[in-house]
Design a binder for these strands. Structure first.
Lengths: 279, 279
DNA sequence: AACAGAGGTCCAGAATACGGACCGGTCTCG
DNA sequence: CGAGACCGGTCCGTATTCTGGACCTCTGTT
């Protein structure tokens, strides 16, 4: 009925489950304030009965819950528990805490751990700095399109060109809607600079005077694991201090990568491997 | 075809999503070592193609991942990220850390945070004690049927009789399979003792000489939030020391409940509210 | 009190998921 | 070393499940 020709490995199998899980991710995107049914309907493109039915299924599994007063939908407690259970394998946060503390200790500024999530970057943790003037532009749970924000830009810049373009294309709508000041070309330039400099710089692009620097770290097999970043008011991230901040970042990147290497996990993941097989 | 007459609110709507989420929970149960497809098939009661198809959907959402070598299924990184996002509302761990540290500090023994998960109890965190002889019977991620283990027993004992019996009934199979030494009557006695004593005691029932005490704490509205527990070798949990340990527990329970009260969240949750409505 | 907009539900029809049967690889044992 | 057992994975016709237009009800507004 609607002419979405589904790209490979998009069309395999279980429509309703895919839809439900998309809703789950969606609810996660606005974990803070929750989402109204109408918003979910709009953002997901599903229609109301379908969205509701799937949400009910998610609620039965306690992955989503609904505030009985406001009727808004939030992540449920099972999501939290699953997260703790998953942290055995995916415990980047735990693994990075030491580095985050060291960063904030050494620089007096706030430091952050971000990871990629689809075409966005999520901030998983914010370690407060000690310097009295602080920027609160970024905090745990917040998500921006890849390329927007220091850590986020670091991640985008670490992708191969083709994938980077795919991300930019996928985010075009959100970009124009929520970040009208940004343009794809702007980001491409930022990426280029990031690659040549070796670290990402956000010169107050999201919130004026709130600057940041960021750098990615990788799994032993080369896959991007996440990004560390530092943020402060512009006067503390001037050209003269940037190299110093970058040095701190790079030291902690090295430390985390060393930890990952020691874990010696023959890292799994991969999906589309056997997707190409046609018959 | 098969005569499962689905109890109320079990039959509403989205079979495949329910099944997929059951698989997700299942994979979470063995987050540590992962699960083979055959195990998943057996434990879930689904048949192979169905299980596989649903797992593929879960993998597309990165909630589950498959080790390409062993082909076993594990929780994926999205599960971890969702957990962090959910921790805004469900951050019992963060909220309890202070108490866990205080407990282990004061008693020199290891302390634990557990929460209910369906008919089981999950250990979310283990804070190491300083006493040189330690028991490692319980650790983060481990799950036992409600009633087995100190924290777990505390939770079960806090349930109304009817619900407690429902839990015992639901767990009958796992109990006889995995905990043959335990019997439902044994647990009923433990519950009775727990209620009269005011704290739960596990006298080495799971691992010999590994004793523990536990107590629940609640949300302001009275719902059970979780349980704190302490564990050590039997000689450190004798009758003379139990009251002291219980006192520590109760102090921290009070502290956490106070924190919860201050958060002043008009707690949501609820599912079956409008389930009774027939037409 | 009439309206607008939200959340929620019904049910016949159509697309979707189900699962028996099958394939190919690996490990085991005679 | 070859037969057998077991495992992971996939195919495809069928029947079951999910879909979504239409409808209801409640709350807040004009």
């Amino acid at each position: 009925m609607h002419g979405k020709l589904p790209s490979i490995s998009e069309l395999s199998g279980s429509q309703s489950v895919d839809r439900a899980l998309r809703l789950l991710a969606l609810v996660g995107r606005d974990a803070e304030n929750g989402l109204a049914l109408s918003e979910i309907v709009e953002e997901s493109g599903l229609n109301k009965p379908t969205a509701r039915r799937l949400l009910v299924a998610l609620m039965r599994a306690r992955l989503v819950e609904q505030d009985p007063r406001s009727r808004r939908y939030y992540l449920g407690d099972e999501a939290f528990v699953l997260g703790v259970l998953a942290s055995r394998r995916h415990g980047l946060l735990e693994l990075s805490m030491e580095s985050l503390r060291a960063l904030s200790e050494a620089t007096m500024d706030s430091s952050f751990l971000s990871v990629r999530r689809d075409n966005f970057s999520v901030c998983l943790y914010r370690e407060e700095g000690t310097y009295p003037v602080r920027t609160h532009a970024l905090q745990a749970g917040l998500q921006h399109p890849l390329g927007i924000g220091a850590g986020s830009l670091a991640i985008l810049s670490a992708l191969p060109d083709e994938e980077m373009e795919a991300v930019l294309a996928a985010n075009r709508t959100v970009m124009t809607t929520h970040y009208p000041a940004y343009g794809a070309d702007q980001i491409r330039q930022d990426v280029a600079k990031t690659r040549q400099r070796g670290f990402a710089l956000n010169p107050g692009r999201i919130v004026a005077s709130s600057w940041g620097v960021g750098a990615v770290f990788r799994f032993p097999d080369g896959r991007i694991a996440g990004a560390l970043s530092l943020a402060a008011i512009d006067s503390r991230v001037g050209p003269e201090r940037q190299p110093e901040l970058a040095r701190h970042l790079q030291r902690e990147v090295a430390r985390i990568e060393e930890k990952l290497r020691k874990m010696f996990v023959p890292r799994p993941t991969d999906l589309d491997m056997h997707a190409g097989a046609r018959s």
